[in-house]
Computed example of a mutant assay.
Amino acid sequence: MSNPQEPYQPVQPAAWPAEPAGQPGNPGQHGAPPLPGNPPHGAPGQYGAPGQYSSDGPFGLPGQEPPVRNRRKPWTILGVVVGVLLLAAVGVLILVNVVNGATNHARGLADGFTKLVIAGDSSKAYDDYLDPALHEQLTKEEFIAGIKTLKMDRTCKPAYNQVNASTENGTKAADVAGLITCDGDKKIDLAYRFEGTDELRMINIKLKPQA
């Protein structure tokens, strides 16, 4: 014997779950949670607050740290300037040394010649210091006789107040002027000129009592 069928009862649909309190269902409304892939304001990757830089921003736009300035360039320029000044100083020093060397050499020649004629060794002075061109204008006998007329002795002392040296077209030249002072208030003006390429020789001479 079959059981009698229960009367048909319609199925009631389940109720829609209620939204949690405080969370609106519309994501477009104010206060909605951020969408996936869009980090909230101020998160890394965004520009952030004004005055702050982020290393993730595009080059040259706000958000990237300004490039560090190259500080080597000023130091390089300063080094070049210092190097040029040092070279100039060295060049001046070399030039001064060359000029001083030439004037000292001319002074030495004049002093050696003058001491010989003061000592009465005029023949050696003629042979060692006078240029062959001057030999043709002034014989040794004339030279020795002229020196004797000055009547110099060992009390005579030379002083050189002007010494100039120069070089032109490979020819060296030196002019020396001064005064020989002897006892008895005797004074003799002197003026020599030396020229030559390798060895300087006297080409002009003046020995005259001071008036």
Rank of each mutant, 00 (worst) to 15 (best):
G196F: 04
Y53D: 11
I94P: 01
L87H: 02
L179G: 01
N97V: 14
E136V: 05
P36Y: 12
L207R: 07
N97L: 12
A174Y: 05
S122N: 10
P132G: 04
E65F: 14
D183Y: 09
N38D: 11
A119K: 09
A191F: 00
L35I: 06
T197A: 13
R69T: 09
A145S: 09
P34Y: 08
G101V: 06
N161C: 06
Q137L: 13
N104C: 11
P67M: 07
L138F: 03
D56K: 15
P158T: 05
A21F: 09
L130F: 07
T149A: 09
N38C: 10
L85A: 14
P39C: 04
D131W: 03
P17I: 10
A159M: 11
L190V: 04
D183R: 15
A21D: 12
V84G: 03
K115L: 12
A18P: 08
A133Y: 11
P7C: 14
Q29T: 11
T76W: 12
P40D: 14
G178L: 02
D56M: 14
R69M: 10
G112P: 02
L130D: 07
T139L: 11
I77P: 05
Q52V: 11
P4A: 14
E142Q: 12
C156V: 01
L190D: 00
H135C: 02
P34S: 09
E199C: 05
L138T: 03
F113W: 08
N164Q: 11
G196P: 02
Y160I: 10
S123L: 09
T171D: 09
H135Y: 02
K140N: 05
Y126V: 00
V92P: 03
L207K: 07
T114Y: 05
R193E: 03
G37E: 06
I144G: 01
V11P: 12
G60H: 04
P7K: 13
L61M: 10
N169M: 10
P4L: 13
L190G: 02
P13N: 05
P24Q: 15
P17W: 06
W75Q: 13
L35K: 04
I205D: 15
Q9C: 07
D185N: 11
